[in-house]
Design a protein around this nucleic acid. Structure first.
Lengths: 184, 184
DNA sequence: CAGATCATGTAACCTGTTACATGATTTC
DNA sequence: GAAATCATGTAACAGGTTACATGATCTG
């Protein structure tokens, strides 16, 4: 399960709580793999049962105790094996393209409005990658001194950027094509 | 639910069985929205309950009777409304990028092998779009005479092509970057 | 004084996949 | 003789989202 292995990946850098892990997800991989706390907590429990993690309780007053998880040797092996396994292509699932596919049912303005809106959303996403994610990686690279690792972090960011640029170009081209269509 | 609306979309062209609908999915939209028969059949039943479809039984010997579904006026309205609704961006979910993100854990050959394999998969997918999907759209456009509609079908295909080209470029660039890295 | 941050979880629900169940006809 | 095509479904399972439950401290 990719979720568990992503958690292993972050825990291979340093021991952390579920809450900390959630922040790492949000700040560096959420644009290609997101997870909610309600999914992370039970996953960590299971991973402990699997022998991939150990847990230590950091007692606190006035708020829930911190459960700090540490990766085990078994966990490292499981992560390494998974990283080397061949990967199938991720299926695309985008409702927007269903709307485009049946776009002939709408009048020109409505389908153009859809495209304009999607264009804006993807432009915002692109900006966010170029600002926030880029910065986050930079910060992390400096804070941890993981120089080699940061090369790979940047590769995933570049894919994100390329992906958004693809959508932006496609939206712009599609808008032009529809505007050029004969109205019937 | 996008599945139901995709079914409505195809049924807005002509009455069909679940089996027929599955083939339309496979031949024209599976690269951005896939569905199994085991999901389509119960969805059609529900849509009938919702008043979006009517059903007629076409009796057959020696094989299950064909249940032919026809869209109702309510169904057309539901489809039209949905097509005009604003759409959120589809979240990306690709385990491959998790592997790249933690690629620093692998040695150079292993991560390069991953990238080469993913490159090949996406090249094959691109070829398949350019051959099969393109043809299928062409065929459908001619068979149905839905000229305006086929413009939109082609737009979704073009997005598929752009998407695969993006992956291919990114894989090639990433391979070069990793090959150029200092080995440690 | 409202909202974010820290910190943990459980339960219900929704969507989608896999496996099971049946079986004749046509094509290679 | 094996595999694809036609044609319907149900049941179990897996993964992920939303809602519920609690509550102090810090920030604007």
């Amino acid at each position: 399960m990719p979720l568990k292995h992503a958690l292993l990946g972050f825990l291979s850098y340093q021991p952390m709580t579920g809450y900390d892990l959630k922040q790492h997800f949000d700040r560096s991989i959420s644009h290609f793999w997101n997870a909610k706390l309600s999914q992370i907590y039970p996953a960590l429990s299971q991973m402990r049962t699997d022998g991939w993690l150990t847990m230590e309780v950091d007692y606190q007053e006035d708020r829930p105790n911190r459960k700090v998880y540490q990766i085990t040797e078994n966990g490292r092996v499981a992560l390494h094996n998974w990283l080397g396994e061949p990967t199938e292509m991720a299926p695309v699932r985008d409702a927007f393209l269903i709307k485009v596919f049946f776009g002939g049912k709408l009048n020109r303005e409505d389908i153009l409005a859809q495209l304009h809106r999607y264009l804006i959303l993807h432009k915002e996403q692109l900006t966010s990658y170029q600002k926030n994610v880029q910065q986050e990686i930079q910060k992390n690279a400096e804070a941890t001194g993981l120089v080699k690792e940061s090369v790979f972090w940047n590769l995933t960011l570049e894919m994100g950027i390329k992906y958004e640029q693809g959508w932006i170009e496609w939206c712009e081209d599609s808008i032009k094509k529809i505007e050029a269509m004969d109205d019937d």
